[in-house]
Every structure is written in C-alpha cells, then in structure tokens.
Design a protein around this nucleic acid. Structure first.
Lengths: 204, 204, 204, 204
DNA sequence: AATGAATGAGAATTCATTCAT
DNA sequence: TATGAATGAATTCTCATTCAT
C-alpha cells in the first residue's frame, strides 16, 4: 500500500470513529468522507461497505485493548491488574461510543452477509480485499486476556473462587454499555465499578 | 377515541415492538404497518413520528415496570424485594430488545431534532406530546421505585451502606444492556447478576 | 389497486419502453420517472428493481404477441398465418427495441436473483409484490403459438417437412435481433424475411 | 512501442474479450485490468476510453474474419465457400459474445458522444483514432468479402438470383445475434443455418 | 378514521477517468 | 511506461412523511 493510501486509511478511520461517535452508526458515509477530507469514493475504496468500516474500527480498538491487556498481564501486579484493566477498558469504550454500539449490529450483519454471499456479486468479488477484517477473532483474544488476568488475581486471592473469565467478560460488556448508554460521568462510572468490583472479590 | 382506533393503536405497538426487536430501530415504519395489518397512514395517524412510536413503546414498558415495582414495594419482603425486582427488570428487558436499543437512538434523535428546529414546528410538538410520549417522566418514576426498594433493603440490612438508588439504577442499566447485547442466556444472566448482587450487599 | 396507481403503472411502463428504446437498457430509472411524470419513488414502488421493470415490459409485449398469435391461429388462413405472424412479430419487436435486448440480460439476471435470494433481504421480502412477473412463462406460451401455426401450415403444405416450431422460434429470434441491431429499414427487413421464408418453405 | 507495451496491449484485449463476454459491456474497466494483470492506468494508457477498448476488440475480430474470408474466396470452392464462410462467422461470433453485444452499445454510445461534444475535445478524438479503432472500416471490408463470395456462388449456381451481398450480410447479422442471445447449441445452430441456406439457394 | 399511493430528500455504491508516485 | 490511489458525478434504492381517495 502506498504511503498516501495508508495515510488516508488512517484518517478515514479516525474520522469515522468521531462521526459514528457523535451521530451513531446511522451516520452517513459522506459525512465521514468530509470529516476525513477525502472524496467519498476514497472511503469506499478502502472500505467497500459501511459494515466493513464499522468492523475495521472495532478491529482497531480491540487490538489496542488486547495489547494493553497483555502488557498489564506481563508487567502489572497480579492482585490488581484485573481491576485496572477492567477500569481501563470501560473508560476507553466510553470514549469510543459507536464501536460498542456497533458490536451487535456489526456482528449480525457480518453473519448475514457471509451467509448470503453465494458468489453472485461479481463486483464485490473483484474488490475482495475485504478491508479491515475479522473483529470476531479479536474478540476471542480479548477473552483470552481476561482469563489470564483472572488466573493471576486468583493466585493473589483478589477474586472470588467462583468467578470465571467469562463472568468478567459479561460484566465488562454490561459496564461498557452502561457507561455508554447511561452516559455515566466519571463519578458514576467509579461508583458502579466499585460495586461490581466488590462483587467480583466476594462472589461465591 | 373509537374502539377500533384503540385496538389499532395496541396492535401497532405490539407489531412495532416485534419488528424493532427483530431488525433494530432502523426498521421501516412500513414493515410495522404490514405486521400490524394496517395501512401505513394509520400508523402515522396514531404516532405522527417514528420517534413518537419508539417513545410510546418505551412508555408502555416503563409503566408496566413501575407498576410491578410498586406492587413489590408494597407487598414483598423488604429484604429481598430489591433483588427480585432487579432480576425481573433485566429478564423483562432481555425479552424486549427494542426498548433498550431504542432508548439511546431515540433520545439522540430527539436531541438532534430539537437542536435543529428550535421549537419552530409547534403543531408537530403538540401532536408529539399527545401521541404516546414522555418516557422521561416514566423513567423518573422508575427511579422513585428503586429508591423505595433500596430504603427497604437498608432497613433489612441486605444492601451495603454506601449504595444509593442511583447506583442501583446504573447497575440495572448496565445489566439490561449486557443481557441484550451480550445475548446472555438464563445461566449467564444468573451468574452476572449474582456477582452484582454480591457487590450490592457488601459494597462500602 | 387504486385507479390512480393503475394509471401510473401504465404510464411508467410506456415511458420505460420509450426510454429504454432510445437509450438501451442502461438508461437511468430517473429518466423514466421524468418521462412518466412521476417521482422516482413511484417507479420503485411499482417496480422494486430495474430488472423488475424490464421484466414487466417484456411480459406486456409477450402477452400481446401471444394474443395476436392465438387470434391468427384461430381466424387466419392456415397456409399463410405462420408467415403473417412471423412478419408481425419482427415488425413489432423492431419498434420495441429494448425488450428484445433485455431478453437475454433480463432472464439471466432473474435467474441469478432467484438463486441468490436466501431470504436474507427482509426489505425485499416485505415488498414481495414482485411487480410485473414471470416473463418466462409468457415465452413458453409464445412457443406454443408457434407450434400451432407450424402445424396449420404443415396441413396446408406451406412449410417444409423437417421444420419444427422450435426452428421457427430460433429464426424468429435471429430476425428480431437482426432487425434491431442491424437497424433494418422496411425494405431490408422485407428482403431478409423473404429469404428466411423461402427457406422455411423448402427446407428438408 | 516497446515490447512490453505491445505485450500488455494484447493481454488487455484478451482480458477484455473474456470479461465483456462474461458480464456484458457493462463490466467495469477495473475488472479487465485485474484479469489482465495490469494496473488500471495501463488500460487507459492503451485505450483512452472504454469505447476505444470495445472498438479495438471488434477491430481485431473483424480483421481476422476478413482475412479468413479472403483466403476462402481465393482458395475455396466457389459453390460452397459462401456457406462455409457463413457458418464459420456464426460459430466464431457465438464464441465471442462480447463483440456482437458491444456492436450495438458501442455504436450508440459513439453516436451519443459525438452528438454531444461536437468535436470539442479534439485531443481525445485524436487519441481515439490512434488507439485501436475504426471498426467501421473493417465492417466495410467484411461486406466486400461477402460480395465476392456471393459472386462466386452465383457463377456456380448455388445462390438464388435475387440474393445480394447485403442480404447475406443481414442474414449473417441475424444469425450471429440469434446464436448469441438465443444461446443456441451446435445442433440448433446447424438447423437454423440449414433453413437460411435453403432460403439463400432458392430465393427469388 | 382508515387506506395506500406518491413524494422526494438522502444514503450507499459504482465506475470511468485523472494524476501523483 | 506502469502503477494504483483519488476523484466525483451518476445511479440505484430506501424510507419517513404527506395527501388524495
């Protein structure tokens, strides 16, 4: 990929994250093109479908989250890393609105799309670069990170015996959506997480 | 309002809840009309705007939730009523996708719309009020119910000292969205709530 | 269907036949709407897809051709009806350009479309009026008419023994396309058909 | 022209013939570039316009047909050369979809284009001439070949008195289109041509 | 009150063509 | 010469909303 193309790709992703964040996943692709300072055709060259764009944003965010989690798992204090990470993810997600909102819609659409594409749409086949790719794989990696952090917390005795990585993931999902749709400010977020953390420590 | 008109109103609300549940808030009003077995004009006669329809669905759900909460507060055991109610709301919301999904979209759209047309179209505003609306009042009532239930639980010593009604409301929001977008089955929902409940009991 | 809707449907078909005739099947749907004097949404309400529009035109033409053929078979002179009909069809087709052009593209697209629609596209499912419908059935009927006319001509001894209805259909296809793409004027058309008719009389 | 440039030109023509054959003249230039294994810019360097590309394909086919016809006229048996050639052309055209399909689209577009830009973009016109073009000249040569073959057949008494070269050309056009759009297999093609040949022998 | 057709702005997507690398 | 990214006009299609019947 040429340098200017890579630059534009990044600008489009940034613009899309902003715009989707401001207006929800229904925002028009053209608005994104304008914000990114490119022509609309350029957006579609990089992300042949609005869905692809959404998926690429998610992919980028998840990748970042996974990396941060792996760092914490390696370097952080076992006793607290899980809680630090939980807080970090919720905070980050609250700043990246859409992505979380898109999670459901996005994955459903992708499923439908995959099921439907019986090779009929030749134009799409030609394009088949399929842009940003496989956010679902990244979701899996995120869960792996949580398992690791739970294991470390268990060693340190800072998490209840009955708590699994999946449980933490579910609470995390809830907290992210809550922060987002509940429009929690920092104080509310802090209080809600405090309750959840107390539960994670004492559960079972 | 004539009897058949009232019947239509109900059928439209039911259909809308189904359709929005299946396809998200982006579903077309015409699809709802078809599902309800009425002409599209009839939908717009009852709900002058798509937003009004969304709001009316929410209103109906919230009203039901508030009523159930008031019953529990009056009749139930103070020690457990809060937790019973929390579980009930999450379960109910998990079955009514839409509503939760619509919450955000609805409020955002309304905001945008309001910002743009600063009260110019007074007639439309009036119609809107008439139609089904004001879910925000109902949200307030819901919070009232939670305060009551927390107070009762505090008397019974089944909730942590530092926990407020607003905290419970925030956790509830999170749990509802989590159940919905996380597509939790009953087991997962049970486990996630167990952790939250443990937190509510032990917090502070 | 309401009277005004039926009227519009007919106007759209007329306009489409003209426009496609002038500019080929690539002509824009908007041009058709303008020519018909309706909004573009109206065209799509009647014919949800460009393909549906093309198919409806074909259907209309084929139906007319079949009717004319049946009349000739019933009333005309057995000895000449086949040739009269052949001439009539070619002349008519030459005036209705696209239709013939659309024949191939149309039927292919329809096939692809049918193969692809795995019930994924809900919007389309809702609409499922599927507008003008099944030109292919009409094609079958046309062949039936040709068989009849050949049989009558055989009785009258005006067609070669080895000639089948399908052969006549193939020559007819060739003649229609030739007239169209060769841009034959009346004289050329007359000469070309004369040769074909001589062949049909003497073949085998 | 450099050797690699000449090689590219040929690869593009081959790819275009394939792609247009598969998808019709509406196929995108980019698809052709991909199939040819070159960048899209390269396609436009060789053929400044899509039309030029279409014209170049036709030119190449017609040139081949004319050469074959001249050989037959020189070496073949006068009595049968006309019919052999007719069969050859139809068979060849049936394999080269595009070309025949492009014939109409091409000439129409050219007409429209010419009418609109009355010689304004002189540079483009020049480029166009340079590129591959003038299939119409080649069409003329093809007719010349047919005249010759008809003359030979007349000497041998194997063609009706009233039949002219132009008549044969018209039948040929019809047969090519019929073979293509009728999707005749070899048997049907054989039977249809047999009838036409019988007509050519006995006409007038 | 209900019906359902018409409207038309808006959104996604495609593609010939240009131009910087 | 070749490359391939960018452009942006054109096109198809969708959908909330209006209005004649």
């Amino acid at each position: 990929m040429r340098a200017d193309a890579r630059r534009n790709r990044a600008r489009i992703l940034d613009a899309a994250e902003e715009i989707f964040g401001e207006r929800g996943p229904g925002a028009s692709t053209e608005a994104i093109a304008i914000r990114a300072g490119v022509a609309i055709g350029t957006v579609f060259r990089h992300f042949p479908t609005k869905e692809d764009l959404l998926a690429a944003i998610m992919k980028r965010l998840l990748t970042e989250l996974v990396e941060h989690g792996e760092t914490l798992a390696a370097d952080g204090t076992g006793a607290t890393a899980l809680y630090e990470y939980f807080g970090y993810v919720v905070e980050r997600a609250a700043g990246a609105r859409t992505v979380v909102g898109a999670l459901r819609a996005g994955s459903e659409e992708l499923t439908a799309r995959t099921a439907a594409s019986s090779g009929v749409d030749q134009a799409a086949d030609d394009r088949s670069k399929r842009a940003g790719g496989d956010p679902l794989g990244a979701v899996g990696e995120l869960h792996g990170v949580l398992e690791t952090l739970v294991a470390k917390a268990r060693e340190a005795g800072t998490v209840g015996d009955g708590v699994t990585g999946r449980d933490v993931g579910d609470l995390l999902t809830a907290a992210c959506h809550g922060a987002l749709y509940g429009e929690w400010d920092e104080e509310r977020r802090g209080r809600a997480l405090a309750v959840m953390f107390a539960g994670l420590r004492s559960a079972r």
